[in-house]
Amino acid sequence: MPTFGALPPSRHGTHHPKSADLDPARIHVPVARATVDCGVYVDGRRLPGKFSHAEALAKVREVQQAGGNAFSWIGLHEPDERQMHSVAADYGLHPLAVEDAVHAHQRPKLERYDNTLFLVLKTVLYIPHESVAAAAEIVETGEIMIFVGEDFVVTVRHGDHSGLAGVRRQMEEEGTHLALGPYGVMHAIADHVVDNYRDVSRRMEADIDSMEEETFSAGKRTDISQIYMLKREVVELRRAVSPLSVALEAIFTEHKDLVSKEILRYMRDVMDHQNQAADLITSYDEMLSSLVQAALAKVGMQQNTDMRKISAWVAIAAVPTAIAGIYGMNFEHMPELEWTWGYPAVLILMFSVCFSLYRTFRHNHWL
């Protein structure tokens, strides 16, 4: 009986590849398909030409042997397992971090593997919409994983909105941050992501204000499902932003031996902006919780008003129903059956009682 997972026999023999032949580092993997950009930077300036990830690292080592200061920066977009293992084999990335980078869906965190830092950032995108009622989704999230070593930066992106081309282009035009080395790139990316947090938070504030105005407006029915949807989006935003505070704090408490004082100064500014965004999002969450309670109370009042109206109309309708029921019993000896004005008198009685009840209910604001 064949063993589960065994390789089928070859048509020309029973030879199977050796385990060494299946090593991802030895298989030609088209990493270029997942590569967005790959550059070599010497003293803050990018070298001309195109490089593969292996060629970029070889060029960096060549410049270092000549006494220069260089590093490589390779950007990947949603690489598969073989592509990521190929890069990891050349750059010496830890398998656990590589697994996180491939499968994504990670919380913001910072981990250290020897002299390599692995930073996970959640990216957010505000989806424009005319109103909360017309929106199916307000916030879309993605991920950026950053491997930072002594002479390399590897960025892995998940999501279509998390592009770093603008950050790279700005750094290449400026040159200051690139001269600070790989950790200068880490700061620039973190600063870009956190600034986006603040922008999305401000834009969501307009949605929350409009929902608050609608909830407390007199005479308008409140759709509580819209508040729940908005709170769900704020919770998703809070899960993307808040955990990053702990990761950034760890740079100052546990890993400052890897980072220069200049980079620490820049990162402190990023952490301040991060805390501001996290506090703002927390306040939004609390505000929406209050709105949910207010909306539930308003819905309860609306239901009470509707029940009073229904009860009032039922009471008015009960009068002619009762009188008609009494005179519909077909007994021979009943008052006013032989009276000529009996029928008009009963109609006038029913109308008078119903009108009297209607005025009473209107006076008591039931109708």
Rank of each mutant, 00 (worst) to 15 (best):
D285L: 14
K256T: 01
Q170W: 10
L7P: 03
I310A: 12
D151P: 01
H103N: 14
V292P: 12
R26V: 00
H12Y: 07
L244T: 08
V42R: 11
E236F: 11
V246I: 12
G342H: 07
D285A: 13
V314K: 02
S260M: 04
L22T: 00
K122V: 00
V153L: 07
S131E: 01
W339P: 08
M186S: 03
R362N: 01
K220R: 15
K220G: 02
Q170H: 13
A97Y: 04
W366Y: 08
F355E: 12
E99W: 09
F71Q: 03
G163L: 03
R168W: 11
I323H: 07
H158R: 05
C38P: 07
V241W: 08
P30E: 06
E338K: 15
L357C: 06
Q106G: 01
L22M: 14
A312L: 09
I263M: 02
P108R: 12
K109W: 07
F118I: 00
H192L: 02
R203A: 05
R107M: 04
R198Q: 14
D90H: 06
P335G: 02
A322D: 01
P24C: 07
S242R: 12
E212H: 15
M350K: 06
Y327P: 04
T253S: 14
F152E: 10
R268E: 10
H129A: 02
V235W: 14
D43K: 11
L7A: 09
P320E: 09
V299C: 00
T253R: 13
S260C: 08
K261H: 11
D207K: 12
V167L: 10
A136D: 15
E332T: 10
V270T: 15
S72I: 09
D257W: 00
